[in-house]
Design a protein around this nucleic acid. Structure first.
Lengths: 137, 137
DNA sequence: ATTTTTATTGCAAATGATTTGCAATTATAA
DNA sequence: TTATAATTGCAAATCATTTGCAATAAAAAT
């Protein structure tokens, strides 16, 4: 998993540095939960893997998005969250505690095809449910 | 249309001021296109209706959202966009020129009901399509 | 109609997320 | 092992948004 991600980055012509490796590791273990820069920062291991600056995390997020290794999943309260680009997933997000759960289904490809017929290109969509989770409700 | 909006605001117990009236007017004429604070600022008529501060626009947007007159529609690269809460609508947004077109359909209520059965409350969703519009493609 | 009360405004300064310039560092190519 | 070019950390800059506060204006009370 992590293997595949690092390979993708290198074959896109970028160096594999400690911060990048750490961030990819966090994504690899994220279970599909969208994460903010701060979330990732908090999950890095300063002892062994890297003690890196928030600025580097932002730079790395931009790079990983550019190389299509991750994608922006949602912007919640002005804070961008990212997830691995691999699987196409949607979520339900608690408006109170921000806990996020992935969903499996997505029947929206039909809709995209209709737009394609109208001349749109490179179509994608973003679908997020929100509400108060059972705990917060 | 504008009439109904101002009435809603007043009956919620808020004063009808020049900035608020101007902002509601902009929404009333917005054709369902999501707008940012800056977008609205640019559409106010400083001559006759009001020359108001951006801070007041932000404050008014928060108030209108709180009173459920408008709702946040999507977050575009960290910039919040709003639209009238009246109709439930989704959009397709051009990633290049940011032109936005409203869509009519939405078959996602079923999904929401499923979440409700799991204990989620106050459920809503946000669905946006994006791509390159026929002009930009 | 005038005054009083209280919400709302404008301005400027504060905030919070994200970006950027630059010198120092480090991964990779040579 | 050294050279070179990308990447980093740090601090300062930026951008969207929020907030404190004194001045203003809308609606309520007279």
């Amino acid at each position: 998993m992590l293997e595949a991600l690092t390979k993708k980055l290198k074959s896109a012509g970028y160096k594999l540095t400690a911060p990048r490796l750490g961030i990819l590791r966090v994504f690899a273990q994220s279970q599909g939960r969208p994460m903010s820069a701060e979330d990732i920062f908090a999950q890095l291991e300063p002892r062994n893997e890297c003690r890196c600056d928030l600025a580097s995390i932002y730079r790395t997020l931009n790079l990983l998005e550019f190389t299509k290794i991750i994608r922006q999943s949602d912007v919640f309260g002005g804070v961008a969250h990212y997830e691995l680009a691999g699987e196409h997933r949607h979520h339900i997000i608690c408006r109170s505690c921000h806990k996020t759960e992935p969903l499996k289904l997505c029947q929206l490809k039909e809709q995209e095809k209709q737009f394609a017929r109208l001349g749109y290109r490179e179509i994608s969509h973003r679908l997020e449910f929100s509400g108060l989770c059972p705990t917060c409700a």
